[in-house]
């Protein structure tokens, strides 16, 4: 665990989420037919926080879904250990909805590819926008985020970890040289 560096602290994460919440409302001219969909597990907590922030700003509780992308992964049958399957919970059909897909880290883009395939199985959304807390680069697919908390240039040998209170007891984004 050499060379750990905190690149975002609790206040930083909160400010970024506040800004993203405003940006979502601005870009979509309100909250009409919006739905937040969090990708398990980090994205779910971030989506919940965005939902609370939008409620504070607009006074509207927008619906939220939870997506587990395991079954759509392009390496699901290639990994030695099967990833543990989590529950997906979509409150309604996504027909004509404006979907805000929420994840913690945007890296190769493969998770987002899988997530978009999964979303389409729940209907034909009007549009899909992507919100991430950290964009660390190194895309392997033509995917970009609409809302970014922090652009974090990183090398492939580094690991970026988003700690959230709901999961690990503290709010922090850490970059470290991986062993």
């Amino acid at each position: 665990m050499a060379n750990q560096k905190v690149v975002m602290d609790a206040d930083g994460i909160d400010r970024s989420l506040t800004r993203i919440a405003y940006e979502i409302i601005e870009k979509n001219k309100g909250v009409e037919s919006l739905i937040l969909v969090g990708i398990r597990t980090g994205g779910v907590f971030l989506a919940q926080r965005l939902r609370e922030k939008i409620l504070k700003i607009e006074g509207v509780e927008i619906p939220m879904g939870i997506l587990d992308i395991t079954l759509y992964r392009d390496d699901v049958l290639k990994t030695q250990k099967k990833p543990l399957l989590g529950k997906t919970d979509m409150p309604s059909s996504l027909d004509n909805k404006k979907v805000i897909l929420v994840d913690d880290v945007l890296f190769t883009g493969r998770t987002i590819r899988a997530a978009m395939d999964a979303l389409i199985d729940f209907g034909r959304p009007k549009l899909i926008q992507l919100s991430v807390l950290v964009d660390r680069g190194h895309r392997e697919l033509p995917i970009r985020a609409d809302f970014v908390g922090k652009n974090l240039p990183s090398s492939l040998w580094e690991a970026v970890t988003v700690h959230l209170t709901e999961k690990t007891g503290r709010d922090e984004v850490v970059i470290e040289e991986s062993v």
């Binding site: 587990d68 079954l71 759509y72 699901v76 049958l77 543990l84 399957l85 989590g86 529950k87 997906t88 919970d89 059909s93 395939d117 999964a118 199985d121 729940f122 209907g123």
Partner: peptide, 27 residues
Amino acid sequence: NLILDTAESFIEVSTREIKKVPTLRGK
């Protein structure tokens, strides 16, 4: 327990309008 936990997550797939996931494509 692993089988039961995994199965519980699969319940939802059968309640969708499109009751299909691509996981075992080509198998």
